[in-house]
Design a protein around this nucleic acid. Structure first.
Lengths: 229, 229
DNA sequence: ACCTGAACACCGTTCAAGT
DNA sequence: ACCTGAACACCGTTCAAGT
């Protein structure tokens, strides 16, 4: 409502790419990906639907720009925390984890737009730290891309979980409880493992588990380094 | 054209959930996710759009069922190859990699539908092998979910790459060449790492790198096991 | 140069009506 | 029980017309 004011008000900047992206982020945060439409956006900006196309190419461009705005800010914050490479990589991972917690649609967009700017920012932050660990050549490539893919995988899954829960109006506990109950009803002969971990589903700490996964990969990288030395 | 025949022909089974899923897979393979619409599907099946809703709940259900059909077949094949757990996990990973190569939309769907049947099949295949490596309790949970998230991350990224190239009619070399050229034009001060690996982008072997990532995580798991023993 | 807003070509989904 | 197909309520995008 408060944001619904006309931009013809005094002091109000005219329609710009930046203001469009800001409004898009607001809509995405409030109502998920379904909340971002050109009609809702033009209403919020107090303009016509077609005016937006003067500043952005299409909806893909808009989603990518919104995602990049969030990722750029997250990476700038994580890059500020100096320290040993391993700590820096953990900080980047946690920063992205929190960002996706606050903006679930970012995780979905990262999975959809490969090799675009948001991913490059993450790749640069991680890769430069892996290089600082003393890796180079093919080992550097392999270590960096394994970490990147793991982080993007968690990001996408977390985003999907959040979006699913949000669309059905469930809180985390209810959502995980529902999944756990479904898993418990699986055929014991075909799915013994999944049934056995159904109970753990509600108790685990997403964020801590995520960092442990990063540590596992870093341990694997270190083991190869030691073996080669 | 050949599939456009009416199902009132003699011997033709009546409309069923299975035939709808088969036709959906055909449309998805041919034209990507944009190719699956209820109009295209009903035309291909020689029926009305509304008839499909008698057999499936909605488009989400349809996409999930199509994804599950592909994943179920892939996992059944990978599960057949016995051997040490590490080999079995590699086989599952490679099987999924090939399946997503053939059906890029499967990777996108895996990223979107968390904790549904397709993911459970993968989780069961991997988790049971990690358990066979001697892990249990929290270590089992952490190892299994790290591997799962890594595999899903690669799956989603590969799917996005393929979909992007397919939508623009590019072959792999052209696509990677375009990305590499973009990366080479990045600001040298802000993106030294990404620029340094731009050249490697065209030469690397997706599939081999993917398996190496699995090995890195397995090495990390083994290192923790050794440290604890 | 920038904006308007009606119009276009689509979607997924529903539902009264048929068999 | 299963199918038809028109209708509904949306989309993203375009474009002649305005300022």
């Amino acid at each position: 409502m408060a944001n619904n004011t006309r931009r013809t008000q005094r002091g109000e900047a005219s329609l710009s790419r930046e203001s469009i992206i800001d409004a898009s982020i607001g809509l995405l945060d409030a109502n998920g990906e379904a909340g971002l439409t050109f009609r809702a956006l033009s209403e919020r900006l107090g303009t016509g639907a077609g005016a937006i196309y003067w500043h952005i190419a299409n909806k893909d461009d808009l989603l990518d720009a919104a995602c990049d705005a969030v990722v750029a800010q997250t990476m700038a914050k994580a890059a500020g925390s100096a320290g040993p490479p391993r700590e820096a990589i953990r900080a980047i991972g946690l920063g992205l984890f929190d960002a996706i917690d606050a903006h679930p649609w970012v995780g979905a967009q990262l999975a959809r737009a490969p090799a675009r700017m948001p991913m490059v920012r993450i790749l640069e932050g991680i890769g430069s730290r892996v290089a600082a660990m003393g890796l180079s050549g093919n080992a550097l490539w392999l270590g960096g891309s394994a970490l990147l893919h793991y982080i993007l995988g968690v990001a996408a899954q977390n985003a999907a979980n959040r979006a699913f829960a949000q669309a059905r109006g469930l809180v985390r506990e209810d959502y995980l409880g529902t999944i756990g109950a479904e898993w418990s009803r699986l055929d014991p002969d075909a799915y013994p493992f999944t049934r056995s971990i159904a109970a753990q589903l509600c108790e685990h700490d997403d964020s801590a588990d995520f960092v442990t996964g990063i540590d596992l990969i870093l341990d694997g990288i270190a083991a190869r380094q030691a073996g080669r030395a």
